[in-house]
């Protein structure tokens, strides 16, 4: 079984990777990618089913917070049933999106402002090293440079400092991070294709 799964992973990976460089493999690549899309969608369903089972068990066991779990399961099943029946683009389903999902997420995002300011204020009390100071100064300068005054941009900050930080200094760091992430991704992917890493449980 281990060899079988490894062969599947390596073979599929090589075929898909070959599709990037060899046009002859483009169709096979597309076929495999379409299969993968279907299976990814099915995996999303499996994840949701798992969420249902977990919270259902909590309700069945009457664990602490089972009331909230019951609410979650009811909301989930109801939405799913209505979604299956009405389809997601139905206006009723839009109500759920505009009335519940968007307000809750946006409000949670709004609460983040308080938390961010609170964390920034307390940061230097916990650690006052170079990186923290640089981090906080940069954030403060950019926040200040992003604002305007009634008569226009904040002199120097909004017109010179902010653009230079974001377009030069931050660009260099971000590029380094991106290249590092790409190298890490490349390494991890190659390990999977070589069978060194088997995150699918075939170790």
């Amino acid at each position: 079984m281990r060899i079988f799964t490894a062969v599947i992973a390596i073979a599929a990976g090589i075929l898909v990777l070959g599709g990037y460089f060899f046009p002859a493999l483009a169709d096979i690549q597309t076929l495999l990618l379409n299969w993968a899309i279907i299976l990814a969608g099915m995996a999303a369903l499996v994840g949701i089913f798992n969420l249902i089972s977990v919270h259902t068990d909590k309700v069945r066991r009457r664990e602490k917070g089972s009331t909230y779990s019951a609410i979650l399961v009811i909301a989930l099943v109801a939405t799913f049933v209505f979604g299956l029946i009405l389809r997601p683009d139905h206006s009723a389903m839009a109500i759920l999106m505009s009335g519940i999902i968007i307000p809750v997420e946006a409000a949670l995002m709004g609460l983040l402002t308080v938390s961010l300011i609170y964390a920034a204020i307390r940061l230097l009390r916990r650690r006052a090293d170079v990186m923290s100071i640089v981090f906080l100064i940069t954030a403060a300068l950019l926040i200040l440079g992003s604002a305007t005054l009634p008569f226009g941009n904040i002199p120097l900050l909004g017109t010179l400092v902010r653009p230079w930080i974001t377009q030069v200094l931050a660009l260099g760091g971000a590029r380094g991070i991106l290249i590092g992430v790409a190298l890490g991704t490349l390494t991890t992917g190659l390990r999977v294709l070589f069978g060194a890493d088997r995150p699918y449980g075939g170790n």
Binding site: T113, I117, I121, L123, L124, A140, A147
Partner: peptide, 12 residues
């Protein structure tokens, strides 16, 4: 936010 972070940050 700038005022709070700078003021509070220096205080902390």
């Amino acid at each position: 936010a700038m005022a709070l972070i700078l003021g509070g940050g220096l205080f902390n």
